[in-house]
Nucleic acid binder design. Structure first.
Lengths: 234, 234
DNA sequence: CGGCCGATTGAGGCTTATCAAGGCCGGTGG
DNA sequence: CCACCGGCCTTGATAAGCCTCAATCGGCCG
């Protein structure tokens, strides 16, 4: 369990991440200044309300972003995985983190100082433009999700959430979701209750839309699930 | 009703808008290339699904951003006014506009070519950084709003929507909302029905939270409204 | 003055959250 | 190896909140 940080220049996530078109010189600076740590499944790497001081990259793993709303209700705003940049919402939210982030499995995290990263951006318009596109994309996805969650009924929200997990964390060739989530966690994604998740999943199984086996969930009929939420092109 | 476009260099919205730290040279280029038009109350300036080709600035007026969801349900995603940049979500949404935009009152609009604006950004890191912060701010606000709309009950959503209109479009010294919205429109902001809006507004009036007079709505007790939605600091 | 459109108010029914009971499964200790 | 325990999941019953439909009201304009 060595804590030797990975080398940015040969990081396996470099090619797919936002840093893909970052020059070697720039990366070398980031590499020297970056921090690195591990988090175990279930542990938090960011606590809601903490001052915003760093940007975080998921070097390896899966995380959930959780906020607390009225009456203490928990909501999973977002899921992220290896290669994703997280925590940048602190930039806009009065320089505190608007949400907590928990590891869904043992994960490794790199982080760099806020000011260093922002200065890097300013001296590198291409990188900044990529970040801009990234954030604009997040905004677009969030607005679509908001539209869905405020209009859909429970069954539709559950279907949408399953597809969201499927798209975000991937799946085996049998359609099995590559993450283990409790009913409560799925409920916090779909903005409903754990009982409704149980009911909907049971219904979906009898309707042949999914298959369950222990804690595993297989999406065996994607077109049907997509049709439920108004996606008609397979 | 002359259609002479305003001069960017002396535009009254320059100081408060995103273009505030744009150099005169840059503004001169934009000024020469920009388009300008008027739109009457109720008319659309952007139609959902249109190809994304321009960025739009509200030179003068008030607008609503509307999307259509499952079963044709309309939702008002956002309100904007004089000086605001609108339409940039098309950037992320596969280069089509994800929403329609309607004028809430007679308004004047400036627009510039997408590529010209993006090139301007790339050659001006400070401006790009401001746009980045703007978008990050929009993302943050959208996430807060999503949390609210998915957790709150109807009364709370109506209170939240009234405060949103109040903050966005301003108010007279008597607390009167400076915009005229139908019950249906308020419902599309709060994600409920026009009947529930009627009921909630009547209740709020008897509870002394607001006052109504014809089509006018006065927010006469802000602290009470804010307390309803969990804002305790006055 | 009449008609039309939006707002209001009430009644009914549907969806969903909540509460409660029972089942399943994995872990632990006898 | 088996019994027990606790946590999570499932399923059912109930109740509350909300949407829908419908009737009435009120203002505005022709």
């Amino acid at each position: 369990m060595a804590l030797r940080p990975p080398d940015c220049l040969i990081c396996e996530t470099r090619n797919c991440s936002i840093m893909s078109n970052c020059s070697d010189d720039l990366l070398k600076i980031i590499d020297e200044k970056k921090g690195f740590f591990k988090v175990r499944k279930g542990q938090a790497l960011i606590h809601e309300g903490m001052p915003f001081e760093k940007f975080y990259f998921i070097h390896q793993g899966k995380i959930k972003v959780v906020t607390t709303g009225l009456y203490g209700k928990q909501q999973i705003k977002r899921l992220a995985k290896t290669g994703d940049l997280v925590g940048f919402r602190g930039m806009a939210a009065n320089h505190t983190f608007p949400a907590s982030i928990y590891a869904l499995e043992d994960s490794t995290i790199c982080h760099i100082d806020k000011d260093l990263f922002l200065n890097t951006l300013k001296s590198n318009p291409n990188l900044m433009f990529n970040i801009l596109l990234l954030i604009a994309g997040e905004l677009y996805k969030m607005e679509v999700r908001m539209k869905n969650l405020t209009i859909m009924n429970v069954r539709e929200k559950v279907a949408e959430s399953l597809l969201y997990v499927y798209d975000t964390f991937g799946h085996s060739e049998t359609g099995e979701l590559e993450v283990s989530l409790s009913r409560q966690e799925i409920a916090e994604i779909a903005m409903t209750t754990k009982e409704q998740i149980s009911r909907s999943l049971s219904e979906f199984e009898t309707e042949g839309k999914i298959r369950m086996q222990g804690k595993k969930i297989f999406l065996t009929n994607l077109p049907e699930l997509k049709r439920m939420i108004g996606v008609f092109n397979g």
